Simulated scan of single mutants.
Amino acid sequence: MAPHLVLPEPFTARPATTADVPAVHALVGAVERELLGRTETGADGIEASLTRPGLDAAVDSLVVHAPDGQLTAWAWINRGRRAQIDVAPAFRGHGIGSALLDWTEARAAEVGTDWLAQNVDDKDRAGTELLRSRGYEVLAKNWQLEMPVAEVSVELPEGFTVRPFQPDEARAAYQLIEDAFDEWQPRRKSYEEWARLSIERASFAPALSPVAFAGGELVGAALCLDLPDPDDGYVEQVAVRKDQRGRGLARALLAIAARGFRAQGKHNLTLWTHSDTGALAMYERLGMSVRRSTTVYRGRVRAAG
């Protein structure tokens, strides 16, 4: 069962449902506009978070409302390990974020984990200070990289063929990407979870997602999303099979994706990379530069009871 939540008066909370997605999306958009000056998260990303396998929204999520019904905050925790908390800018300073952090830690303890991680934008000083005050330490860094699409030219290495993603390639793409990510990620996603967070999203753009073949085998992919920002084309996942790396295929896949987004009027190609991948220098060699960063903080969780 979900742990008890102690909110400051007069706020109330309940589990989130998919009916809350539009309101949560508006809240997250307000947070992003304050921090970044633009909205990056799509409504389908909110829905994917709430419906991903392994997360039971009835006990692993909350929405917080003011007496007039206005949504003031939301939170979720996945498998007792990863959590996310967003508080509307107009409602900061009321103790809502602290209460939700208590709740996520209690939920993590309830499912038997001994640590909890949260990702915070480096411009979010309040969120950073809150986690630091609780003894959370830096676990990893994430960087959002960008590249102007006007400067990209396509040079496909010899021996490869590239075309847009097709639905019947989903399982092969999953295998390719999770094999590549196994080199650094702590837990391999199931196909169902991977699909829910990527190719099943409404913003997934198969026509803009190049996949590469060598000898009839899928060896590279750049899966792309068409997100709200009118200027940016977004690469959700990019991977090249280990035995095919170092031949320029990643560069070609990103260039082809950039060309597709440029045809749609986008100005930049963006993607995220994680410090554990060691890929930041590679992307910088490909002509990308860091736009912004986030930090993953990890804290110890006391056993329940």
Rank of each mutant, 00 (worst) to 15 (best):
D122I: 01
A90Q: 12
V240N: 00
A48T: 04
R247P: 00
I256C: 03
L225Y: 10
L27D: 01
Q144L: 13
V296C: 08
L254Q: 00
I199W: 00
S293A: 15
L55H: 01
R163F: 05
A202R: 14
V111Q: 04
A66D: 13
T128W: 01
Q244F: 15
F165H: 05
T41P: 02
E169A: 10
E200V: 03
V6M: 11
E32Q: 15
A83W: 01
E32Y: 04
A303C: 09
A88Q: 02
H94K: 10
V59F: 10
A13R: 00
D60N: 13
A173K: 00
L227F: 01
L71H: 05
Q166D: 09
L280D: 05
D86I: 02
R245F: 03
L71W: 04
S198W: 04
P89G: 11
L5K: 08
N268T: 10
E155A: 14
V28L: 08
G216L: 10
L62A: 13
G220C: 08
R262G: 09
D56C: 03
D86Q: 14
R92C: 03
V290F: 09
T12R: 14
R82D: 12
N268W: 15
R300F: 04
P228F: 05
S293Y: 12
A83H: 04
V21W: 04
A202W: 03
R247H: 10
S289F: 13
V63A: 08
V211E: 01
G45L: 10
H274P: 01
F165L: 07
P89C: 11
R14Y: 05
T273H: 02
A57H: 11
P22G: 06
G37S: 11
A255Q: 01
G299P: 08
E47A: 15
L7Y: 00
E158T: 12
A250Y: 01
E105T: 14
A19E: 12
F181Y: 15
D243L: 09
A172I: 01
R82H: 14
V154W: 08
D68P: 07
T18K: 03
G127R: 00
T51N: 07
N119S: 13
Q144V: 15
G260K: 00
H267D: 10
I199F: 03
E34G: 09
K242N: 10
H94Q: 13
Y174N: 00
R52N: 02
R245V: 04
P15T: 07
T294S: 15
E34K: 08
R107L: 12
A26T: 14
E200W: 12
A281M: 07
A221D: 02
L218V: 08
A258F: 04
L280E: 01
A48R: 02
A281P: 06
N142T: 13
F11Y: 14
E137P: 02
A170D: 10
E158M: 07
D243T: 13
A57I: 06
D276P: 00
A73C: 09
T270H: 06
N268G: 03
S133I: 09
P157E: 08
P230D: 09
L223H: 02
V154D: 03
P167H: 08
P53F: 04
